[in-house]
Nucleic acid binder design. Structure first.
Lengths: 349, 349
DNA sequence: TTGAAAGCGGTACCAC
DNA sequence: GTGGTACCGCTTTCAA
């Protein structure tokens, strides 16, 4: 003999109304019981909570958002997760955002380019903010979001438009530092395997590298496109090594490409790194630290970058009228063993 | 003297009502214009669409979901993305789901164990379905979801409870096949570096490996816990190599651990692989194929697994009463160079 | 085909 | 502190 249904499958979910009836109180009271800091007596809250538990009630956050105008969802657009920098970033961002009471609505930019129709959807979901972490996404999209009044933070890229906030590593300075390291280690023929020309991240690294080479007495590097992809990187290094005067130091615009290049150089061309050729990357993605690679690179500190991203979001949510800030997180040179060392310098680890 | 605001920033987003007024029609008409297959004349639709474009109207999917009872969101819970199998899985799943008109609401299980409070949130968001891809999440959670009437699919794990659908690779058979390979290559002292004992995936692989060893004349393997983590894997291999009779073949319960073990064995202990010791893994995660590792492993085919996951979701959404299916996707042995070869067998690549 | 009106499940303001 | 009620933005009967 039982009074309440024995919780069978697929019952219609209990609503605040059901709970109110069950507890013999108003529906408003139910709402208050689930609103931290609302004006409600302990006795009442107790009573409501008991009824809620009995019915397996769960507040409908979607319905709530309709009136509060906050969904608690942050749209995150990522390109390929094949770049080893992004899985860690995504996980850290999700954790940090969860701690602030937000969840990630994830959008992946399809390979074949045009992500705009999908991005249109992201706005229809009334996300509270958007993080754009795909180098390939048009900045037109960022404008679209800003126009819709949704705060946008560009992660690991910038935009010429002032409306978008952004968080990046020190791309220019990092690449400059790598050029200097290469010069001081006595290399004479630098090369640069580039990412997509329209990616701000790639552009800044290229500029920094060229400036660094020039400043430290190196000739202008050979520049070959690699497109931030494995296939592109292989094609690029193959072309470089086919030259009559192959480079003695190669800077890859991302660790992802650098790892591929390292493997290719060693296992396809039988070269020793760094004795025959030095390879450096950018990011300090996890595999860069693996002993098999021991890649010399420039770190983009994920945790601080994520931290800054969340801060920017919260800032703009609090005061939408404030100007968008562009934050640059300083990185650091990580000297391992894939690049010849200048006199007196020791690798880490 | 203007009638409509000149679209400045942060205007309140236009609603269907605004569009209706602007077009001089009813709000219902606006709704119909944006509902494929609704009963509306071309002229009317045209008129509404024009007004919508003029106001920058975007249908509010959240409000819609309140009445349709479909949010178009699928909750996905992942553990650490450090396991290289998951980023690819997540990307593939997001793409596939997007093609079906669904987006991913992402939840990450915090390191320190208890994910239940966060999981409670996932249900409050009224997701249409849930994918559990974290080995560490309690299956109690899966029950919770089923009880709430939300279809659940376990990815890369199973549960003893019948309520949850699941998709896994052929863990038992794969591990069995690896044991056979090890035996036929002439090894005599097998070891197993295990994952968490309560993970179904680990359990199945262990059972398969033990069975395979027994069936092919090998002694029972030494079993050491590795916890699916890098630190655990290092501790495990260190312990194994300190034994008076160290193993000559080590099966790691995941590629993630196998990669770490390979690096440790080579760079910390100065051993040659596979001449001094054979290492095999499970998953065929991307780094397994990198030339520096050339890891012999058993493939879990991500694409078919994701496909099956989406199919299961769609199935259960269409007929909630149908029994939950447990799908096993067959894998295949991937023979590379981290394990000694049986006579006559050639590595791939 | 079209418009009016009743909700969907909550929150917030209003008196009491 | 509590209950009543308007309303968030949309879909969906129901008549016209």
């Amino acid at each position: 003999m039982h009074t309440t249904m024995p919780e069978s499958h697929v019952r219609q979910a209990a609503t605040a109304h059901d709970v109110a009836r069950h507890a013999g109180v108003s529906q408003s009271a139910v709402s208050r019981a689930f609103t931290p800091g609302a004006s409600i007596s302990p006795a009442m809250r107790e009573r409501v909570l008991a009824a809620a538990a009995a019915l397996g009630y769960r507040p409908n956050l979607i319905a709530r958002s309709l009136i509060t105008r906050r969904t608690g969802m942050v749209g995150v657009a990522v390109g390929s997760l094949a770049n080893h920098l992004y899985p860690g970033m995504l996980e850290a961002l999700a954790n940090r955002l969860q701690a602030e009471g937000y969840r990630i609505l994830l959008f992946t930019a399809p390979r074949d380019g045009n992500a705009d129709p999908e991005m249109e959807q992201i706005l229809r979901y009334q996300v509270d903010a958007i993080v754009l972490a795909a180098t390939t996404l048009s900045s037109h999209l960022a404008d679209e979001c800003s126009a819709a009044g949704v705060p946008v933070v560009l992660f690991n890229r910038t935009s010429s438009r002032a409306a978008a906030a952004s968080v990046t590593g020190s791309n220019h300075d990092g690449a400059y530092a790598l050029a200097r390291l290469i010069a001081e280690a006595g290399h004479r023929r630098p090369a640069f395997i580039a990412g997509p020309p329209n990616a701000s991240t790639n552009r800044d690294r290229q500029e920094g590298f060229l400036a660094g080479c020039a400043a430290h007495g190196l000739p202008a590097p050979i520049i070959v496109p690699g497109g931030f992809s494995e296939a592109g990187a292989i094609a690029a290094i193959t072309e470089l090594l086919a030259r009559p005067e192959p480079p003695d130091a190669v800077f890859c615009a991302s660790d992802h490409m650098a790892i591929t290049v390292l493997d290719t150089v060693r296992h396809c061309f039988g070269l020793r790194v760094p004795e025959d050729i030095s390879i450096v990357g950018f990011d300090d993605a996890p595999p860069a630290a693996w002993p098999s690679y021991a890649l010399t690179t420039y770190r983009q500190p994920i945790q601080p970058m994520v931290e800054a991203t969340v801060t920017l979001i919260l800032e703009r949510l609090a005061s939408p009228e404030a100007p968008a800030r562009q934050v640059v997180i300083p990185g650091e040179l990580v000297i391992r063993r894939s690049c010849r060392l200048p006199p007196g310098v020791e690798p880490e680890g």
